[in-house]
Design a protein around this nucleic acid. Structure first.
Lengths: 112, 112
DNA sequence: GTCTAATGCATAAGAACCTTATGTATTATA
DNA sequence: TATAATACATAAGGTTCTTATGCATTAGAC
């Protein structure tokens, strides 16, 4: 049962981190990358992805570069300087969030 | 800056797990418990808490028991049988979610 | 050769869940 | 005696997701 029911506000973080690790990516590529990394357990829908990409661009965290592949448009996204700063913050915030959840839920996490 | 900006859909899981560990709790007590366990970093607002408790009750995961403390009403919540089953599932789902995020984000988590 | 799936972009309606604000009342404390 | 803490609750509004739809090109199956 894919999709883990929700991305729960972490989609921005996911997109920014993938861009930080891959230099530049286009939308469809992001959906495939997430699907592959999660072994099909997390699916990013287009209805969630594109509005988020547009929002990140409006906020100045990513910049775009459109390319024609044959007759098909492909829109590449790349981090801006403030995007690079933002990734670090968001990853830290995510880790803190996990720490808090572990304490509140009183659970332990296994690490490989 | 408390509140970690969002509970991100994990409030049900938090409430159910606290009830699983504490037998019975009332609403206000839950807000205090979360605040204490998170050392003030996670705040459960009443506007989020009460509708969620009512929803859990409507779903049959918790049952209530009202008590008068002096002239003040206190409404205790307790897990039902299906609530007990649900906690386990939700905790497992949460751990899986973390595993997936760790893989997708390509990060490591520290464990104390 | 032609139909379908995959690639690739995008938007819109509706749902879920949160924040912020408000309301009421009792009890403890400064 | 006023304010903070305790204790419940609901409502408006915002964010972010799902689901549905739309358009077009390219690859692959039959």
């Amino acid at each position: 049962m894919p999709n883990t029911e929700q991305l729960r506000g972490n989609l921005q973080t996911i997109i920014l981190k993938l861009l930080a690790d891959s230099d530049k990516m286009y939308g469809y590529e992001i959906t495939q990358k997430v699907r592959d990394l999660s072994e099909g357990q997390m699916l990013v829908t287009e209805g969630a992805l594109y509005p988020t990409l547009h929002k990140l661009e409006a906020e100045g965290l990513v910049k775009t570069e459109t390319r024609m592949i044959g007759k098909r448009v492909r829109k590449y996204y790349r981090l801006t300087k403030s995007g690079h700063l933002s990734v670090r913050e968001k990853i830290e915030e995510f880790k803190e969030f996990i720490d808090i959840m572990v304490r509140v839920l009183n659970i332990k996490l296994m690490q490989a």
